[in-house]
């Protein structure tokens, strides 16, 4: 999936001239490429991903997905994009506390062959979460929830994986396991990845872009 940012700038930064590798620049993410957007807090990492995923539109400039301006995408095109082309790991995880791990996994609308619930369960077992499968999410620690969110995103079909600070609450061991899972999944799907990080991520062969 090809993504182009053309002179994009969040509205909140319009008053204060902002210059980075992305803001107020032309920048392109090519098919299958791996990037990490780095920057301190408040530099607009999450905002950038929200613009890209169509959750927010409070910016100036234009974003193109596969050469089509996202303002021109119809609702059906967005649904297809969100369903089949993009998987996201949200910074706030977007899990429903009252539901079990299994039920949260089941919220994904369509599993492609080989990435059904059983595959998701295996991945969680691999991350030391096997016995938590039927447990309500509200009983889990943030780090455990983060692993559920990562696995849920990996179970979706995608061409681009978008991760907003996905390892922020993981210890080294679990982070390493998660990176291996992500590496395998994006390699299998021949997909690209965009990841945001405060300090930079040394794994996954990510090219750093500074905000």
């Amino acid at each position: 999936m090809k993504i182009q940012f053309k002179n994009v700038c969040p509205n909140i930064f319009i008053e204060t001239p902002l210059k980075s590798d992305v803001w107020n620049q032309d920048f392109t993410v090519h098919d299958g490429m791996r990037y990490q957007f780095r920057g301190q807090s408040g530099k607009g990492k999450t905002s950038l991903l929200s613009f890209l995923l169509g959750y927010r539109s409070d910016y100036r400039g234009e974003i193109f997905i596969n050469d089509k301006a996202i303002f021109e995408l119809s609702i059906d095109e967005w649904i297809k994009l969100r369903r089949e082309k993009v998987a996201s790991i949200f910074q706030d995880l977007q899990l429903i506390d009252q539901l079990s791990v299994e039920e949260n996994m089941s919220l994904i609308p369509k599993f492609q062959s080989g990435y059904g619930l059983s595959e998701g369960k295996k991945m969680l077992e691999n991350l030391g979460m096997g016995e938590k499968w039927e447990q309500k999410v509200e009983t889990l620690s943030f780090g455990q929830k983060q692993r559920v969110a990562i696995v849920r995103a990996l179970c979706k079909p995608f061409e681009l994986l978008i991760c907003d600070e996905p390892f922020s609450h993981l210890d080294k061991m679990h982070k390493s396991k998660c990176i291996k899972l992500i590496e395998k999944r994006i390699s299998d799907a021949n997909a690209g990845i965009i990841l945001t990080s405060l300090d930079g991520e040394d794994n996954l062969g990510l090219k750093s872009i500074y905000l």
Binding site: L53, Y55, I75, D76, I79, K80, R82, R83, E84, S88, F90, Q94, I96, L107, I108, P109, K110, K156
Partner: peptide, 12 residues
């Protein structure tokens, strides 16, 4: 919940 479903790709 509705927002999450839409983000995950459920149709309106």
């Amino acid at each position: 919940e509705i927002r999450l479903m839409l983000r995950l790709g459920h149709s309106i």
